[in-house]
Design a protein around this nucleic acid. Structure first.
Ligand code: ZN
Ligand code: ZN
Ligand code: ZN
Ligand code: ZN
Lengths: 131, 131
DNA sequence: GCCGGAATGTTATAGCATTACATTGCCGTG
DNA sequence: CACGGCAATGTAATGCTATAACATTCCGGC
């Protein structure tokens, strides 16, 4: 809460939930946990999430229709983030790679493709779960 | 048809639709176009798509919940495919990059992450639509 | 106080995907 | 040929994900 005083009530509630979660959460799972706080409709969650995504405080995992709090909210200069999602325990690692970013930017340049947003998600098993 | 004699009837119907489409199609859009061929339920489409994905004859675009026929069905050695999706005209370009693949594989090695599947999707505007 | 924009609340609906179960067709074995 | 096993198919029902449309409230600037 105190860390995000510029957020509205709903946005704070949603972000708090995401930060406390150990794994990605679907919008409906978030909603279920916020019923006691007075939230009742999916749209309330989706609206809060939209803002949090805009601010870079949360991310959407396209391949599993779920959301996570940003792991590095203060150092996102790169602009291209990759996620590794463990399909067994649900843990998500967030990382970025300059060279990957440059390669994709190079491809886009050559093709004349104007990039809006990039999704990079690796699914598999984390070290603990692969053992 | 003649090109995919090892496919079942439903699989052939679905793949034909995807190959004739100029843009990605949702499962329900495919279904709508195959009603005249006797297909009636979403599950029939999803089952055919599952097999086509397994065989590498089609791809799923996670970021838009849609499917495309593979553009290079015969040269997929790389194993890591990226897609550029134009948000205006819907055109999809399929490409791969060895260096990107190596970088991601390197990260996974260092982290002990066992990769199962990788999604890479760039959204934006193609050259024609960006002009 | 008044206005305008942003956020919120509520209901309904649209769009995507799977579960469960019954049926059919095909192929190899006896 | 009869039978058993297995993959594909058909059908209905359900669940999950996301947005449309509209009314209301909140809050800062003038
Ligand atoms: Zn982040
Ligand atoms: Zn794990
Ligand atoms: Zn392909
Ligand atoms: Zn285009």
């Amino acid at each position: 809460m105190s860390a995000h005083t510029d957020l509205t009530r709903n946005q704070s509630l949603v972000l708090d939930r995401l930060e406390k979660a150990e794994t990605p959460m679907s919008a409906y799972a978030i909603l279920d946990q916020l019923r006691d706080d007075g939230l009742r409709a999916p749209l309330q969650i989706y609206r809060a999430l939209d803002k949090l995504l805009d601010m870079g405080l949360a991310h959407r995992l396209e391949s599993i229709n779920a959301f996570v709090a940003c792991a590095h909210p203060h150092c996102h200069a790169s602009g291209l983030i990759a996620f590794a999602i463990c399909e067994k325990c649900g843990q998500v690692s967030e990382f970025s790679d300059e060279i990957v970013r440059d390669r994709l930017a190079g491809w886009a340049d050559r093709e004349g493709f104007v990039v809006n947003r990039t999704t990079m998600e690796i699914r598999g098993n984390c070290r603990a779960c692969a053992a």
